[in-house]
């Protein structure tokens, strides 16, 4: 008999944050769940994944009119439309993941009630699925970027700064995974909080320097902005892509550390709740 299939069932004495060995056995399921989410979302649509570009473009356009032309909020010398679009590119990656994944235990309860597989799989799937619209947005963004930098005589694109891109991407994905898992653990127990999720994400947009530069905040209050772990990656992205403002050093380190802590704590609670949450559904 194959020993490797031996399963022990007992009340967990300690919580394993991630069981890599087990997860790797469910690779195929993860890929199929990503595929399911993708196909199901764009079934019977005209534009399909192209919808991904409509929202950031439209919002950026609205922001350009309202905050740029009417409220005249400065953009650190960058063209307002690109300034908002840069912020929205990363903000949407974050908010999209959290909105789609912040209720994963509840959303998959009927499936979890019938079969066992690692409960984190749908959350991971949601997170990876978000890279599909992100990639499309990035391509459109690149188009606008090329158009701006070739058309402008003064603007200089700093290629070497693109080295930061993978780091920012991983940081934002990790943070949204952490927040999603944490929220899933909370909403599994306190179901009323799932109504708060959309609202909190919406508020988060204004707490994050997407439509305003950090430099527009008075010096003595800036630390409050940096407490938000999404603030530093978005400011860094604007510096990296548009040379707007300066690179936040210490805030980015803080954000990285905070993201790590959030992920570990969220994983801990998620794993604790998932073991028996089906009893309370």
């Amino acid at each position: 008999m194959d020993k490797s299939y031996e399963i022990k069932i007992q009340p967990a004495s300690r919580i394993t944050l991630l069981n890599w060995k087990e997860l790797s056995g469910y690779r195929d399921l993860l890929l199929l769940i990503i595929r399911r989410d993708f196909v199901a979302r764009y079934q019977q649509t005209i534009l399909g994944p192209a919808w991904a570009i409509v929202q950031p473009l439209a919002t950026s356009l609205v922001f350009t009119v309202i905050f740029g032309k009417v409220a005249k909020i400065p953009t650190d010398g960058a063209p307002p439309f690109l300034f908002y679009l840069t912020g929205m590119l990363f903000w949407q990656l974050f908010s999209g993941s959290v909105l789609a994944g912040g209720n994963s235990l509840q959303n998959n309860a009927s499936l979890f009630n019938k079969v066992y597989f690692p409960r984190i799989i749908p959350s991971l799937g949601t997170q990876i699925s978000q890279l599909i619209p992100f990639t499309i947005q990035l391509l459109i963004y690149a188009g606008f970027g090329i158009w701006y930098f070739t058309g402008s005589e003064t603007a200089v694109f700093h290629w070497q700064r693109l080295l930061w891109f993978p780091f920012l991407l991983i940081l934002v994905i990790t943070l949204s995974l952490g927040i999603s898992l944490g929220f899933s653990a909370i909403t599994a127990k306190y179901r009323d909080l799932q109504h708060a999720l959309g609202f909190l994400v919406q508020l988060g947009l204004y707490a994050t320097p997407v439509i305003y530069p950090v430099s527009s905040i008075a010096e003595q209050w800036r630390w409050m902005v940096w407490l938000n772990p999404m603030a530093a990656p978005i400011s860094t992205a604007k510096w990296m892509l548009l040379d707007a403002g300066s690179a936040p050093g210490i805030p980015l380190i803080f954000s990285t550390v905070a993201t790590g802590i959030i992920l570990v704590i969220a994983l801990y609670f998620f794993q604790r709740v998932q073991r028996t949450f089906i009893d309370t559904v």
């Binding site: 020993k3 299939y5 022990k8 069932i9 007992q10 009340p11 079969v115 028996t276 089906i278 009893d279």
Partner: peptide, 17 residues
């Protein structure tokens, strides 16, 4: 419990396969 959908409060089970 045997399908690992929920955990037992106490005791243990072993499935070899």
């Amino acid at each position: 419990i045997l399908s690992r959908i929920t955990e037992p409060t106490s005791g243990e089970a072993t499935l070899r396969g």
